[in-house]
Computed example of a mutant assay.
Amino acid sequence: MADGLPPTLADYARAATAALPPGIAAWAMGGAGEEITLRRNEAAFDALPILPRVLQRSAPDTGLTLLGTRLAHPVLIAPMGWQRLVHPEAERALAAGATAQGARMVLSAQATTPLSEARAAGALCDWFQLYWMGQGPTLALAQRAADAGYSALMLTVDAPVAGQRPREMRAGFVLPEGLAAVNLAGLPRVSGGRLEDLIAAAPAWEDLAWLCSAAPLPVLVKGILHPTDATQAIRAGAAGIVVSNHGGRVLDGLPASIEALPAVAATVARRVPLLLDGGIRRGTDVLRALALGADAVMVGRPALQGLAVAGALGVAHVLRLLQDELRIAMALCGCATLDDIGPALIFFNNGQEGGLTPTSRRK
């Protein structure tokens, strides 16, 4: 381990699991049901061989512009709640580590650090995640984010109710006393745990359209897998789409995010930024996601694992590993810029150039 830090994201995952108490490790690493989707998110990348082009010299430039901000690379930090469970500096450390490596961070609605303090710890902690809480509370929270200097909102739509996570249940995990989503203070929320109450309070398409028109900031929609939903979200005014299955934490048995990406990308057709969330563990995974239509990707568990192992330094190192691996992969594939990354780099998309088509592969 260079400088005592794990050399790969897989090593960070093992180190974090060993470092955390069993219950917190189960919460951080686990997924819904039998964790089929959790495993599939990563395995699906391995089923996409890369088809490089050679003898094309390139000095890779990973820069891009996303909703008006120039970023050094296409790796963002996904929203994750309750970060104080894994490190005392929580979102402050994550924001500092992300900003040190030029990575935009999405602060969770369930953050344990005030909006202004997280933003002060890292200038690129400038997007804020929302869950729907009704018109008044949701708009009030959106305004709090705008007042704190955030530049966009990300509405998570795929978790109107919590998934069942047996790994957490077996470990006896419960949120400790005193841990609070501090940015929700004073806002009314749905009381009780009845499924009927939660579903009744869940948002509908008209609520998304209202929020997109009323919010003080652009609204991206996170949790889209179906291309028709992507179309409806854009019609409702969404400023961006995030293809995501919630990291396999809500409904088990879903396709991997990368499997759902191509159809959504074809529907979105570059009308708004398209991000992919779920299963990114290597720079080559970033390359694959961009090749299949994503403009950028988000990572969650790897950043949380970096936080658990070494605080802000661990977060920064995880992001540095992904950036270095992406640049190496681009150089080896003959890609000078992100615009050079396209579907021709995926072997199974190249039936006319010697590869196998997805249909022939299944025979």
Rank of each mutant, 00 (worst) to 15 (best):
L9S: 06
A10S: 05
A13I: 07
A13C: 00
R14H: 07
R14L: 07
A15T: 03
A15K: 02
A16F: 00
T17Y: 05
L20W: 06
P22M: 05
G23M: 05
I24W: 03
I24Y: 04
A25R: 01
A25D: 01
A26C: 01
A28L: 02
A28K: 08
M29D: 01
G30D: 04
G31E: 03
G31D: 01
G31R: 05
A32Q: 07
A32V: 07
E34Y: 04
E35P: 03
I36N: 01
I36G: 03
I36H: 15
T37G: 09
L38T: 11
R39Q: 14
R39Y: 10
N41I: 04
N41E: 15
A44D: 06
A44L: 11
F45C: 13
F45D: 13
D46Q: 15
D46K: 15
L48Q: 14
P49V: 00
L51P: 10
P52F: 15
R53K: 15
R53M: 15
R53V: 15
R53E: 15
V54M: 11
V54L: 10
L55W: 07
Q56G: 11
S58Q: 12
D61Q: 12
G63Y: 14
T65K: 10
T65N: 11
T65P: 12
L66K: 13
L67R: 04
G68E: 08
G68T: 08
T69Y: 12
H73Y: 02
P74V: 15
V75W: 08
L76F: 05
L76M: 06
A78W: 07
P79I: 00
P79E: 04
M80H: 04
G81W: 05
W82H: 02
W82I: 13
Q83M: 11
R84Q: 08
R84N: 03
R84L: 05
L85D: 02
L85N: 01
V86I: 09
V86E: 00
V86M: 10
H87Q: 01
H87V: 01
H87F: 08
P88D: 00
E89L: 09
E89A: 04
A90W: 04
A90P: 02
E91D: 05
R92D: 00
L94E: 08
A95Q: 12
A95H: 04
A95N: 10
A96M: 06
A96D: 05
A96N: 02
G97H: 07
T99Y: 02
T99G: 03
Q101H: 07
Q101V: 08
G102H: 12
A103L: 12
A103G: 08
V106K: 07
V106Q: 13
L107A: 08
A111E: 04
T113F: 10
P114C: 08
L115C: 10
S116A: 10
S116D: 06
E117Q: 12
E117I: 06
E117W: 13
E117D: 12
A118N: 07
A118R: 05
